[in-house]
Write a protein that binds this DNA or RNA. Structure first.
Lengths: 339, 339
DNA sequence: TCATGCCAGTAAAGCGATTTACAACATCAT
DNA sequence: ATGATGTTGTAAATCGCTTTACTGGCATGA
């Protein structure tokens, strides 16, 4: 309620000038013990806390970074946000969380905020195909790290999961359980994540002599999951195992399967990607390729800090994924040949 | 990369003083059309954006509010965050999202940030029993709105769900389907949400002549859900319907049930609270009391804005909840008597 | 013609920190 | 005695914007 104490107040209380106190606090001045103690005492007595706005104005930076995600109420991005929060906090950085609702205008808006120095840097996660505007806007600001999904043509540090390996693991798993007629249900065809998850899956299937009978690309939505599974059942009844490239798509697919009394695991094996939702509690529990969300956050914050520290290059970091075997793929027969 | 234009730059370009431009932009000065046009043109040409830190320093407020939740990767709080983001944005407020990890020290830390004027106001959601420290800290700052869970003894605007009605609806539903021996699995006994959900449930059961055979209070964790269900099965085999007071607890309970091959719905009817997770995709889909997360967010932001506007009183707002009937409670027999 | 009021706009003092450049004083070697 | 070298600080400008109090100039009415 009452106006908080300023640096001036502390200085007066300690019988010093504001400059001295400031420099002492920021370590650019070392003082004899008794002087230092006087300052410490004054700070303690007044419960002084520096005003972050004055500090940011003066220093030209805010020690605040932003995280932009398409939607925070998607379990994957929620976990990512939590992990980034933790990493940022550990690095002494405050986090501003933004959600773009997957709309380009909002994404540009927040990039603009970066340009205004509202935040020192931005960790950027998008989920839709860019027409070039995003890439252009990102190119304007430095201090952007792209995470999870690529924005084509942008020179910035990038942190991704090893989607190709994820696709490969999914294929391997189903093939090891005897499945030979496979299918893929993925996100937008223009997105790196879709392409990579698909290519890893397809290549491993080919290598193992199995066939990918169908691939359904579309938005990362419930609806696309529902419809893709409808088409799969109708057009490719021979398929016994499907790799579904996100949790959201999985939920749609599950709905269709339940409506048609197609049993998960017995009639159609399912492996999904992300493993952010409570898949272990589904019936049956869903086998998934798990992204290392903590790792993504850690590397993204690390890359951003390096960038803030002046490092000019644009490394691309790939994080390993992991197959979490649950019960959604049954063995098709006794076979377990992998080659 | 290059230093962004300042108000001074705009003023120079328009042949005016900074004060004029500032006052024009803030509406405290109306100018003849041609002068205004000159300013607009200069702003456009320079792509001027006000520096938010200078602005905040000068005005003494930031038009930024904070939302503190225990953990952002809990589906309920993730949805709350998304909804608050939307509301804040609509009100021209930026949002800083914090997660306390349910730790008192971190909660106090963020309240301190409020006191420093880092944010103008704070929407505060906690999840654990307060020993008084929190209440004391909140009392220090005005401009705090308490949401979702009460902090005892705090004078602040508050926004809650109608937990009592939620308990009642759960009981009604199970009773209407013929269940007479009921149980409750809830959060910490000292928490308002637990108490209210329980009392609504118990009172309605009593009114309808059904019995609540057992109530298990404990932390809102998977573990407590698991264990409570174990005890329920062992100590009260006569119970046919349980009300589980959060999604998290539900997941634990489901695990126990699957491990013991107890069928959800057929052997034990389940109604949960929150409905934030993807319960519709579970097998069977889980019947739930749904909180109006959008409403909570809307009212919380509204209350905070009123508070920021100077309104001194501390209203408590209760939002209606809704029973979402799915398949996790079967009819016990042909009966559907409610009284 | 002179007060009056309005219009269009400005000067300058903050907001609360940081930072550069320098000052006073003591110590020490020459 | 003299300059060099530390030690312990300080004065004042600066960051970019807001806001209060004013100032000229012009039209109007008496």
């Amino acid at each position: 309620m009452v106006k908080p104490p300023s640096l001036q107040d502390v200085a007066t209380a300690a019988g010093l000038s504001p400059a001295t106190v400031s420099r002492y606090l920021n370590g650019s001045l070392s003082l004899p013990p008794d002087t230092a103690a006087r300052i410490d005492a004054a700070i303690e007595a007044l419960k002084y806390q520096p005003n972050p706005y004055a500090r940011s104005l003066s220093r030209g930076r805010s020690d605040t970074i932003g995280l932009l995600v398409p939607e925070i109420d998607n379990p994957f991005f929620a976990r990512l946000a939590a992990a980034v929060e933790r990493e940022a906090d550990a690095a002494g950085l405050a986090l501003m969380l933004y959600s773009s609702l997957n709309r380009k205008d909002r994404e540009l808006h927040y990039l603009e905020r970066l340009r205004r120095n509202f935040v020192d840097g931005l960790i950027f996660a998008t989920n839709h195909v860019d027409d070039g505007d995003l890439a252009a806007a990102i190119a304007q600001s430095s201090n952007v790290v792209v995470v999870d999904e690529d924005v084509a043509g942008v020179a910035a540090p990038k942190v991704f999961s090893d989607n190709v390996a994820g696709g490969r693991l999914a294929a391997e798993h189903m093939i090891a359980l005897g499945h030979r007629r496979l299918a893929f249900i993925g996100g937008p065809e223009g997105l790196m994540s879709s392409q990579e998850r698909f290519s890893g899956f397809r290549d491993e299937a080919k290598r193992a002599g199995a066939g990918v009978e169908a691939a359904f690309f579309g938005p990362y939505t419930l609806d696309h999951g529902r419809e893709a599974l409808c088409r799969l059942l109708k057009e490719h009844p021979e398929v016994t195992g499907a790799f579904i490239a996100s949790d959201e798509l999985l939920f749609g697919a599950l709905e269709t399967m339940r409506n048609r009394s197609v049993s998960v695991g017995r009639d159609l094996g399912l492996v999904t990607f992300d493993d952010a939702g409570p898949l272990a509690f589904f019936d049956p529990p869903i086998t998934a390729i798990r992204q290392d969300v903590g790792g993504l956050a850690r590397e993204a914050v690390r890359a951003l800090r390096e960038r803030l520290g002046g490092t000019p290059d644009n490394p691309v970091c790939r994080l390993p994924v992991e197959l979490v075997v649950r019960k959604s793929v049954h063995a098709l027969n006794a076979a377990s040949s992998t080659g």
